[in-house]
Simulated scan of single mutants.
Amino acid sequence: MKRLLMVLPLILVLALGALFYGSLGRDESIPSALISKPFPAFELPVLGQDGEMMTEKDLQGQISLVNVWATWCPTCYVEHPYFMELGKQGVVIFGMNYKDDEAKAEKWLADLGDPYTTTFVDKVGRLGIDLGVRGAPETFLVDDKGVIRYKHEGELNERVWKNTFQPLLAELKVEHGGGQ
């Protein structure tokens, strides 16, 4: 009996380890119910621009990304250099600063660079709720009519860009007459 009590914790640890290992690499993301629906209506302040507001109408007219980010998000730091690259390549990116301290967000962009066409502030997270945001970072692909075409949860990096976003962008460009 003593031997069983000594071995039982080891068996539990091994079982939990096997369960964890089996879940690695499995895609647990939940598809967004907003795919093929218009970006939710909003009117939120532009970061660092007293009195200037942004709405969902500002997303129309070009194919763009909306990147949900925050200074408290470690993965946002990891993906930021890649957004800088995409911005230099001419990709239109709107930043949605999510539940964050505005002064910290402004300093972050000043220190690390600003890849965003415009950054708007969702301080209380209301738009985040409407978008089904589960955390930062998340990135939405929005077509030129303001319709959400894809939602990516987690880090957007070169692999994700090439395997997922580039094919979707090519498809959108064909669908919408080749222009951005």
Rank of each mutant, 00 (worst) to 15 (best):
L4M: 13
L5M: 12
V7W: 13
V7C: 11
P9F: 10
P9A: 10
L10M: 14
I11N: 07
L14R: 00
A15W: 13
L16M: 05
G17E: 08
L19Y: 13
F20S: 03
Y21H: 03
Y21G: 04
L24K: 08
L24P: 05
L24F: 12
G25T: 14
R26E: 08
R26W: 06
D27M: 10
D27N: 15
S29I: 00
S29K: 14
I30E: 01
P31R: 07
P31S: 06
S32P: 01
A33W: 09
A33T: 01
L34V: 06
I35M: 08
K37R: 15
K37G: 10
K37F: 04
P38C: 04
E43K: 15
E43D: 13
P45D: 12
G48F: 05
D50K: 11
D50Q: 12
G51H: 10
M54H: 04
M54F: 03
T55L: 13
T55E: 15
T55C: 07
E56P: 00
E56F: 05
D58R: 07
L59G: 03
Q60G: 01
G61P: 03
G61H: 02
L65G: 08
V66W: 00
V68R: 01
W69Y: 09
A70C: 07
A70L: 11
A70T: 13
C73A: 11
P74Y: 09
Y77T: 09
Y77E: 14
V78H: 03
E79M: 06
L86I: 08
G87I: 10
Q89S: 07
V91Q: 11
V91M: 12
V91Y: 08
V92T: 14
I93P: 00
F94P: 02
N97P: 02
Y98K: 06
D101N: 15
E102T: 12
E102M: 07
A103D: 13
A103C: 02
A103H: 12
K107D: 10
W108F: 15
L109P: 01
L109N: 03
L109I: 06
D111Y: 01
D111V: 12
L112I: 02
D114W: 01
T118C: 05
T119Y: 05
V121E: 00
V121I: 08
V124H: 07
R126V: 15
R126L: 14
L127V: 05
L127C: 06
G128H: 05
I129R: 10
R134V: 10
E138L: 04
T139G: 04
T139M: 04
D143W: 02
D144I: 09
K145Y: 08
R149D: 01
Y150F: 15
Y150N: 06
G154F: 10
E155L: 11
N157H: 05
R159E: 15
R159A: 12
V160Y: 04
W161L: 06
W161F: 05
W161M: 06
T164L: 12
T164I: 14
F165V: 11
L169V: 13
L172H: 03
K173T: 05
H176D: 06
G179I: 11
G179P: 01
